[in-house]
Design a protein around this nucleic acid. Structure first.
Lengths: 215, 215
DNA sequence: ACCTGAACACCGTTCAAGT
DNA sequence: ACCTGAACACCGTTCAAGT
């Protein structure tokens, strides 16, 4: 691993932590694996972060910092479409981040800046503060939840889908879950299907609904 | 703890695991804390579950089993409204379950039965299979994502909100996050506000959108 | 059949010591 | 200032032994 012996820093620690979580899941991210990745002893990490909890908060915030911000001066719908697509892509690449979200209550600066830009875009577009709260809750619920589904449903990748459909169909008594079987064999497993394509469809529906509130 | 010395069973192990995760978060759920709760030695657990991973899969499925199923014969919109409200309440009580969702790909029988009932309700209502997939993705993304937001955003409980607003306002340079500050002081922190109330508003918007696809 | 004691290879973190 | 060795109280899990 080239360049790993640059001087340690909070930044490098967090970046390495993201890399480990991406590669093997959150379960493989330990202070010791992180130290190994950085070619350092575990205790050295504590000079740059207070503890593992701060690392978890830090990598969530780092991931939020990768999401494109909406420009408050552009067309609100176009800007929120672009940032939502970016959010889904970024969070989809680091799905453990959404998993971590439910257990932390200390949003970092990048996360706050992100939310501030979304709220600001809605306010600038003319949404009153109560409708802005509605829109914020609806839009970001959709984005987070889609990432959860995409990570959890085994309807991705060509192999994964077939795998689980197999489990559904023969792991249990035949005839259970008839509608899931129909959905799988009649739609999801057909060549052109990609669950990820559902995102844009739902996103447009959500933005339509929000746009309707403005009139 | 009365009745804890009933004979061990997979059922009792999973129930105790849920209780521990509810009380102290997933981080406090260990094979050893679980054994202690059940008044048994850690190794006894392995006679009822293969390993901790199976416990995690098991408690997610247990929680899904608590959600009201829609009846495929009722009015689809009413049924999905009822089951979505139930899902939000149940998952909101056990928020770690949604966090776990992103890292598992082995849905259990209760989870599959749940999804089957939702898909069946949509099919019975006359949605073709492709629109059923759209509706399923949109609706459940919204439900999961709302639970994530409600757990993550510190906009709940009277104290929590004030806490974080404090952090937002003085922890960082003043004037950062102006829109979040406006949203907090001008809306979210006002006496009658409860973020949870946003759920029904967004749910109706989502169901409106889905209903529109049927015509 | 069900439970357990002892052991192994791990964790996060502290503390005192090195450069 | 930054890094580290040794140690502590924990983990999940295996294996051989008990009833």
């Amino acid at each position: 691993m080239p360049g790993n012996r640059a001087p340690l820093s909070r930044e490098r620690v967090l970046r390495a932590a993201v890399a480990i979580a991406d590669a093997g899941g959150l379960g493989t991210l330990t202070m010791r694996s992180l130290a190994r990745e950085l070619d350092v002893k575990p205790m050295s990490l504590y000079h740059h972060v207070a503890n593992k909890d701060e690392i978890l908060d830090g990598i969530v915030d780092l991931v939020f910092g990768l999401i494109d911000l909406p420009s408050p001066d552009g067309d609100w719908r176009h800007e929120l479409h672009r940032r939502s697509t970016s959010a889904r892509r970024v969070l989809g690449r680091h799905p453990w981040a959404v998993g971590l979200l439910v257990s932390r209550t200390a949003p970092g600066p990048a996360t706050l800046r992100h939310h501030d830009a979304v709220v600001g875009t809605l306010r600038r577009a003319g949404f009153p503060v109560d409708l802005t709260a509605h829109a914020f809750a609806l839009l970001d619920s959709y984005v987070y939840g889609f990432v959860v589904q995409e990570a959890a449903l085994p309807f991705r990748g060509d192999d994964g889908a077939a795998d689980v459909t197999g489990r559904i169909m023969d792991g249990f008594s035949p005839g259970d879950y008839p509608h899931l079987v129909e959905m799988a064999t009649g739609h999801v497993l057909l060549p052109g299907y990609d669950f990820g394509d559902e995102f844009g469809f739902g996103l447009d529906a959500v933005l339509d609904a929000i746009a309707g509130w403005l009139r």
